[in-house]
């Protein structure tokens, strides 16, 4: 089973005090560390487990700057056979454009696959639609929020999707297809530094994005402004000794109807 896994290099923004440029045109990411998008981690792990059981090869594909090579090395260290980096000039935010880029790349370079995996969403822009748009462009079946792949047959798969409230939906999907993988589908393995160093010896292929964007519609979405969420009120800091603050808190809980 040959699987193409889309992987994205994203900034680690938890607890960072992000700085927005004065004119609101960009976020300063110069001092923020980066890593592989968490959902893509689960996608690669799932692909590796499938290929360990059923045979086949995994190809990592990353769209972004040259630094994205880092996530391809990680994918290879986890078990992918090789990686392709499609280098863009600047950041392409519009998911329609990204999907179009991936579709043209796959077709022009003749990348063969049985399934394409992507993560449900990216940690930075969180559109969550690139895989769906890609599937439509490739005229392939698509399933999102995949939380389990139970059966793999010659021309279809049985999988489970995660719905609200802990409910899961079991579906049968024809292959080839596109899936977006939900976090929690598995526990991604640890990759050691020495493992990543070894993976660096595997050749990754590099391509320029321009050739796959020709004739396209261009970006349908423009980023007009970055701004901080407005500071709202509503947080109350209780002061005083432990006994006092507990009494105050009890009062508030009763008043708000939380405690009956």
């Amino acid at each position: 089973m040959d699987i193409v896994v889309l992987t994205k290099r994203v900034p680690v923004t938890q607890e960072e005090e992000l700085k927005i440029a004065q004119d609101g045109s960009s976020v300063d990411l110069s001092r923020v560390p980066f890593r592989m998008n968490d959902w893509d981690n689960y996608a690669i792990e799932e692909a590796v487990r499938i290929c360990e059981r059923h045979g086949g090869a995994i190809t990592g594909v990353s769209i972004g700057d040259m630094e994205s090579d880092e996530v391809l090395r990680r994918a290879i260290a986890m078990g992918a056979k090789d990686g392709c980096l499609v280098e863009t000039k600047g950041i392409i935010q519009d998911p329609f454009m990204r999907a179009s880029l991936i579709k043209n790349f796959i077709e022009k370079e003749g990348i063969s696959f049985n399934v394409i995996f992507g993560g449900v969403q990216a940690e930075d822009d969180q559109f969550g639609v690139t895989c769906g748009i890609l599937a439509a462009m490739l005229k392939l079946p698509f399933s999102s929020m995949v939380i389990g792949i139970d059966e793999i047959q010659e021309n279809h798969m049985i999988l489970r999707r995660e719905l609200e409230g802990g409910i899961q939906e079991r579906i049968k999907i024809k292959t080839p297809c596109v899936l977006s993988i939900q976090s929690g589908i598995n526990e991604p393995r640890y990759v050691s530094i020495m493992g990543i160093r070894k993976a660096s010896k595997v050749e990754r292929k590099y391509f320029k994005a321009e050739q796959y964007l020709e004739g396209g519609a261009g970006s349908l979405i423009d980023v007009t402004r970055w701004f901080y969420p407005p500071k709202k009120e509503g947080a109350v800091m209780l002061q005083g000794e432990m006994e006092d603050t507990c009494r105050q808190l009890l009062g508030i809980l009763k008043e708000k109807g939380v405690l009956q």
Partner: peptide
């Protein structure tokens, strides 16, 4: 890659933020 999950987290945090708690390096 066969290590307890909490140890895995500590190692991954150290790789990214240079401390096992994964708190921002800038701070």
């Amino acid at each position: 890659g066969n290590i307890p999950v909490t140890i895995q987290k500590a190692l991954e945090n150290t790789f990214v933020q240079k401390n096992p708690w994964g708190k921002p390096r800038s701070r």
